[in-house]
């Protein structure tokens, strides 16, 4: 399991610690990985999100593969390009219905994961692309470390994120580098809108202790 290789752009941003939660909104757009077909969802998520089986079992209570609820990530396998979305427990009838193996899963039986037919599966071992969206507490729990290590996302998605949230960040005048060149935060859109493909984003919290 690897991140998608060779993103066309790399951006590094150093933000104030209280802006990390803002940066974690990128997980709502999805981050990208490549993985051998046949990998179990639970194993993939542990590696992709740098966490352990206990977290996948207990904290992630709502899990979707291409919009269909997954009840058993231990046995579910990734066989073709897909989007996984992960969330903590959710409120209401909806939350109860979509909870993994929940009492009310019957309420959404038409939207539960159906094992892929053998013929539609990519050959075992072939590499497939997976987008992972992390919502709510999952992003809060795991996001900072992932951002520090660097994640890959669709460049167009990042531009949408920046268009909506960049003005808040620009006020702080954060340190920004694109492909190792320092730029001003307000130049981000102008530079990136000329590019396509994926982008690797790395976020560090500024040391606010004054040295």
């Amino acid at each position: 399991m690897t991140s998608v290789s060779e993103p066309s752009v790399e951006i590094k941003i150093t933000v104030a610690e209280n802006r990390l939660s803002l940066m974690r909104l990128v997980f709502g757009y999805g981050i990208q990985f490549k993985v051998p077909a046949g990998t179990r969802v639970s194993n993939f998520l542990q590696q992709a999100l740098c966490t352990d089986a206990d977290y996948i079992e207990n904290r992630i209570q709502t899990l979707f593969m291409d919009g269909r609820a997954v009840d058993d990530p231990e046995s579910e396998e990734i066989h073709s390009p897909c989007t996984l979305a992960v969330s903590a427990a959710m409120p209401g009838v909806f939350g109860a219905a979509f909870r993994k193996q929940g009492t009310y899963s019957g309420l959404r039986r038409h939207c539960s994961q159906i094992r892929q037919d053998q013929e539609n599966r990519v050959k075992q071992g072939r590499i497939v692309a997976v987008t992972v969206k992390c919502f709510n507490q999952v992003a809060a729990d795991l996001g900072n470390e992932l951002l520090e290590a660097g994640v890959v996302m669709n460049l167009k998605d990042f531009l949408d994120f920046w268009a909506r949230q960049g003005s808040i960040l620009e006020k702080d005048n954060p340190e920004v580098q694109i492909n190792h060149t320092k730029i001003h935060a307000r130049e981000v859109t102008e530079i990136l809108c000329q590019k396509t493909g994926t982008l690797r984003i790395q976020i560090n919290a500024a040391n606010t202790n004054g040295g």
């Binding site: 709502g28 709502t62 979707f64 919009g67 609820a69 979305a85 969330s87 959710m90 409120p91 209401g92 909806f94 939350g95 979509f98 959404r108 939207c111 969206k133 919502f135 709510n136």
Partner: peptide, 9 residues
């Protein structure tokens, strides 16, 4: 908090 999740579903 439900928006992202209901949408994903």
């Amino acid at each position: 908090v439900l928006t992202n999740v209901v949408n994903e579903a």
